[in-house]
Design a binder for these strands. Structure first.
Lengths: 139, 139
DNA sequence: TGACTTGCGTTACATTATAACGTAAATTAC
DNA sequence: GTAATTTACGTTATAATGTAACGCAAGTCA
């Protein structure tokens, strides 16, 4: 195990944390080009994959994008539910242990052995629900 | 409302139904090129989108692919859980009404108004769990 | 039949992601 | 300390997925 690459991972994580919303790999790439004019996609994808393995970043499958995992408690063990506001782009993780129990029951009955859970709910966050205005979508 | 395009939708659905697994839009495209040598991506995507609206096809977000909805009962109203076998590619829909109640509770507390649920569980299906052999993955 | 609407086919391109290769950095052996 | 080894990084190139936009053909209606 080396420590090479961790500098880049830290930079990517900083970029992601500067937003509450998901960013595409190419969004991140554009930001990083400020400091690294010659940076290329594989560098970003490698950093992202390393961060995902460590649990510091989640991939949002339904957006083909990435978010920093800001939750103090690591509910990765039980899994978590992502809520995605389609209005402002806010992405949040919600703990939901009983939901995973329920899932395990349903799929276990079918003889399915679960390994990875993708639970992403699109909708409108509390801020945007009460906000009459429209078109606030970031980007 | 016109009936144009429904022929293509029917063809796409037939292709999808010929597999128990998810297919990418370009997989479908390749099959359709047999009968339609000059077919292009937008034709396939338009047919897929129309089929998805009607409920005959689901998009698998975590695979960037599509499956025919083979369930007789339409649990789309309550939503459904997709199980995806990473070994053989099998994709199945599982009814899970109590799970959606649980989700509604969790997100409702946070003030989130859900509109679309993406619930996809990757793992190994019952056939592949009991099957010692490996590398059976279709494609 | 002619005016109008709808959406299809096509071209071109945008977006997302990875294969592959040479090399530089870190590690280990000596 | 230096050579051998391993690791993974940067780079180039390309693959895979998805869509904008335009002109025209099919259907609709007067």
């Amino acid at each position: 195990m080396t420590t090479r690459g961790e500098a880049m991972q830290a930079e990517v994580l900083t970029v992601l944390k500067s937003k509450n919303a998901a960013m595409s790999a190419y969004d991140i790439l554009d930001v990083l080009r400020g400091d690294h004019p010659k940076i290329a996609p594989p560098t970003v994808y490698r950093a992202l994959n390393a961060l995902i393995e460590k649990g510091g970043v989640h991939r949002v499958e339904s957006l083909n994008a990435f978010v920093a995992c800001n939750s103090q408690e690591h509910h990765h063990d039980h899994g978590s539910v992502m809520s995605i506001c389609d209005d402002c782009g806010l992405v949040e993780e919600n703990a939901a242990p009983e939901l995973f129990d329920s899932l395990a029951g349903i799929l276990g009955k079918a003889g399915f052995e679960a390994q990875r859970h993708v639970i992403e709910v699109h909708g409108v966050c509390s801020d945007c629900v009460t906000d009459d205005s429209v078109g606030d979508r970031t980007s």
